[in-house]
């Protein structure tokens, strides 16, 4: 397990579905509803609780989208912070469980 890694997992309390490549995410507990763009959707779908965020950004985001790695990492961290604030994503420095996203 890499040191100082961030693991992200989708909460089992949320509802989520892809619509034309963009993910709709809803947390009934606080009535929040988000639609995620293509990049955020890719991070959300990769949030399996086992893959470190750094690896998701490197392997999925930078590979798939033509973005600067440092900028992508900073954007990903902001995105994760926002969704974890709404308890849509769970964040830990240890691996977590996650529901598969469709």
């Amino acid at each position: 397990m890499p040191e100082n890694s961030t693991y992200i997992a989708r909460s089992s309390a949320i509802a989520a579905r892809a619509l034309a490549g963009e993910m709709m995410v809803m947390n009934s507990a606080d009535s929040t509803f988000f639609t995620l763009n293509e990049v955020a959707t890719a991070i959300f779908q990769a949030a399996d609780g086992r893959t470190p965020l750094e690896e998701i950004v490197r392997e999925r985001i930078c590979e798939q989208f033509d973005v600067d790695p440092d900028e992508a990492q900073a954007d990903a961290e902001r995105f994760v912070a926002e969704l974890s604030g709404h308890r849509i994503l769970l964040v830990s420095n240890q691996p977590l469980n996650s529901e598969p996203a469709r």
Binding site: L19, A20, M24, F33, F34, T35
Partner: peptide, 18 residues
């Protein structure tokens, strides 16, 4: 609203969102 926008998008695409 975002919800209305999503509903309209599903309608236009013919996706059974509900």
């Amino acid at each position: 609203s975002l919800m209305t926008e999503v509903g309209q998008k599903a309608f236009n695409l013919g996706v059974p969102i509900a």
